[in-house]
Amino acid sequence: MVNIIKKELNQYFKGMFGYFFGAVLLMFAGIYTVMVNCNMGYASFEYTLNNMSFMYLILIPILTMRSLSEEKKQRTDQLLFSLPVKLSEVVIGKYIAILAVLAVPVIITAAYPLILSRYGEVVLKTAYVNLVAFFLLGAALASIGLFVSSLTENQAIAAGLSFAVFLFAYFGSNLTDYLPGTAAASLAALIAAGVVIALILYILTGDITAAAWTVALCVVVLTFVYRRNHRIFEGLFSRVVGSLSLFERYYVFARGVLDLRSVVYFLSVIIFFLFITVHSLEKRRWS
């Protein structure tokens, strides 16, 4: 695995890519710091990071787009398949390399609150907790980006698709506010979500029975609960989307709260997406 990490880092930093990514993120960190902390005079570095999290929408897809799609395009995945290494090692190795590239600008940003504190009051504790959360948010998004890049051999499509997914994660909870909050609407929306999940399952595994069972189970359980007590369905869909949204989870930190549930959530998202990335590669061999 160390070998894979070394190779990936070599590829990131040999070309311009690793530097470019770090430079752009730092540039925005600088702009937002000047804007939020210096011009507007806020004492909280959290606000800066909070604003910056928007940049992830564009930067993370660029960071992860080529990771697996390029292997497929250049047929180097055949080398990886024929080497005596586990696919999980390949995926985790690549992921760790991505985290390392992400960590460089984040660590440099860690100096900003210290610098700012020389010129005024800065709440350092919340600033650093937020910086960790900021990194975790990036890490969770990167695991999704890595998964998306395993689906296609075209970098641009991988980037575009990740961007679309992130955009949905970013605005998703706002959009659900526009949906009717009645119990029946929530039930319908949740069943629709179940169907979408089953469809994704079918595309990934090609197993129609598993997909059908997912839909059936989803419909039966939801209708059963709905008939027992439809009150809990009121506004449920937007609450579910809100609690699943990575960005909503991150905003909790901006209020200066160290939310361990969110940390666990970020880590679960990472593990889940790395897991299905390995399976997505494995499937290529079995198709």
Binding site: K7, Q11, K14, G15, R75, S82, P84, V85
Partner: peptide, 25 residues
């Protein structure tokens, strides 16, 4: 194994590439 299209990392030198494969083996 050498597949029909050699699985090479274009942005590496042969020496780096071979070191990577050797370590992986």
């Amino acid at each position: 194994y050498l597949p029909e299209q050699p699985p090479l990392y274009m942005d590496m030198t042969p020496y780096e590439y071979l070191c990577f494969v050797a370590a992986a083996r």
